[in-house]
Design a protein around this nucleic acid. Structure first.
Length: 487
RNA sequence: GGCCCGGUCGUCAAGUGGUUAAGACACCGCCCUUUCACGGCGGGUUCACGAGUUCGAAUCUCGUCCGGGUCACCA
């Protein structure tokens, strides 16, 4: 058998929206090509002129760029098999369809949409086309054509027998030919149907691996019958398991908006990092040989193989995505985290300058998504109202009385404090605890409560004091002491 | 409804006739600790059901049930 280099293609239609399922398909196409040293191309399938959306192609370019799926050929980068936009290829499809008509493998169909619809009503929801025009006399066809009668071109499907094909994931699949309707190749507007354009372009662009969602599994024989009609080599099919969403009642169905965000842009807006999204969806339906889970795109290329793709549908788990996101956040150099978090820091502090490194030190190990930062630290902006009972903590051995004592000691210590940095405060307070002969918690619990007015905070007393600054810290501690004395 | 595909912890999953049925997320407990988080350790009658093949079945066969997909001049 002739050895060809692997070529895959991502062929989205420009809808202005990148569903994670589509993105995963693109990812696997990229990985299959790159893991075998092949090429990955982008082709825009816009044969449905009614669905044209302004700027939709840019959404595709931007998404691919952000996740790092760089295509080797495509509308924007060119290539030897262009054009890569189907609406610019309109002329290429019709001759192929006409060729099949000449060879008796396809025919003109003049049935109106109305007739097809009434057929539908007569035969129930699942009644198909009755092949009314399949055997029209040639003179009749000529006459209708000459009269300019609107028509489509349909392929003659075999009336009996079965079509069998091999899928790289699902294995051998057979479908009865009688299940197949005489499919439309060219629509009455002159555009090819998706299926037809797909086959023609995949052949012309020398695609070796057709990767797509498994909703196409049952229509694959239609494709093969077309390849056979032309005498073309059938590509390797790689059908991917579906991505599901979990419903309220515990059932699952195809992932859609009601399950949460399903678009790449939406997920990104919610604070998921592109790399985390890619890493997560790579593992949705595919499993590496090793037990690792964190993969960069390059590592995915190194580890990917088609036999690791699973057959069963996978439920999209936002919790696990969030975990990946947290992992990526924690793996960042602190400076990068600070830079990315700055808009959220500014949201809380405005133009005020703060020891950002301390803030990052407490938030980086805790944040799961950047946008949740403002919600994690409201107490740094403003001291909330809080009950004195917060001072009581069994494990730290604190109660209303000793808390007041601790605060008094802490205030005295901090008033004398020269350097107001986190390490300096850390040293000073630990020394104080030791001098007082109490465990760290006994001193630090009341300090943290007074400083934050919040039972659970990211970071500890020293970090909070360092971020608040000297004046605000002392003000809060004194207020806390006063509250305790009033009890 | 016909046809096609699937069914291993709540979720993602490894597993291809002999395993104590991995690992991860989530959950719970403990440890660490300055609360929380991070980190560490530990926890869970999970192979849909019923027959069959076999010395032996999550793995092979059949049936049942459940889930999903598909039957367009949409892609």
């Amino acid at each position: 058998m002739e050895h060809q280099t692997v070529r895959t293609r991502f062929a989205p239609s420009p809808t202005g929206f990148m569903h994670v399922g589509n993105l995963r398909t693109a990812l696997y196409e990229y990985l299959i090509a790159k893991s075998m040293g092949g090429s990955f191309l982008l082709r825009i399938e816009d044969t449905d002129q009614e669905r044209y959306v302004e700027g939709a192609v840019d959404v595709i370019y931007n998404t691919l760029r952000e996740v790092g799926l760089q295509h080797d050929e495509g509308p924007d980068v060119g290539g030897a098999f262009g054009p890569y936009i189907q609406s610019q290829r309109k002329g290429v499809y019709l001759p192929y369809a006409e060729q099949l008509v000449r060879e008796g493998k396809a025919y003109y169909c003049f049935c109106t949409k109305e007739r097809l619809e009434s057929l539908h009503q007569e035969n129930g929801a699942f009644g198909g086309y009755d092949r009314h025009c399949r055997d029209l006399p040639p003179e009749e066809v000529r006459r209708l054509l000459d009269a300019g009668t609107p028509h489509v071109i349909r392929q003659k499907m075999p009336l009996e027998g079965t079509t069998t094909f091999q899928d790289a994931v699902y294995g051998e699949i057979s479908i009865e030919n009688r299940e197949l309707e005489d499919q439309i190749l060219i629509k009455s507007d002159g555009y090819p149907t998706y299926n037809f354009a797909n086959v023609i372009d995949d052949h012309l662009m020398q695609i070796t691996h057709v990767v797509r969602g498994c909703e196409y599994l049952t229509s694959t024989p239609k494709y093969n019958l077309l390849y056979e009609a032309f005498g073309w080599e059938i590509p390797t099919y790689v059908h991917l398991p579906m991505i599901m969403g979990k419903n309220e009642d515990g059932s699952v169905s195809k992932l859609s908006k009601r399950h949460g965000s399903t678009g790449f842009a939406d997920l990104e807006r919610e604070g998921y990092l592109p790399q985390a999204i890619v890493n997560y969806i790579a593992l949705l339906g595919w499993c590496p040989k090793s037990n690792e889970e964190i993969f960069s795109l390059e590592e995915l290329v190194q580890n990917f193989s088609i036999d690791g793709i699973s057959k069963s549908p996978a439920v999209f788990d936002y919790d696990k995505l969030a975990w990946f996101n947290g992992e990526y956040l924690r793996a960042m150099p602190p400076e990068e985290f600070t830079a990315r978090a700055m808009p959220y820091y500014r949201e809380v502090f405005g133009e005020e300058e703060k020891p950002w490194d301390v803030l990052t030190a407490i938030l980086q190990p805790r944040a799961v998504k950047l946008p949740e930062i403002p919600g994690m630290i409201p107490f740094l902006k403003e001291l909330p109202e809080y009950p004195a009972s917060l001072y009581i903590n069994k494990k730290s051995k604190t109660n209303l009385e000793n808390s007041a004592e601790m605060l008094r000691a802490a205030i005295a210590c901090l008033e004398a404090q020269q350097e107001w940095s986190q390490p300096a405060l850390h040293a000073a307070l630990l020394e104080l605890a030791q001098a007082l002969g109490v465990k760290n918690g006994t001193l630090l619990w009341p300090v943290r409560i007074a400083a934050s007015g919040t039972q659970v905070t990211p970071g500890g007393a020293m970090e909070i004091l360092a971020i608040l600054g000297r004046d605000e810290s002392l003000r809060r501690l004194r207020a806390g002491l006063k509250k305790l004395e009033e009890e």
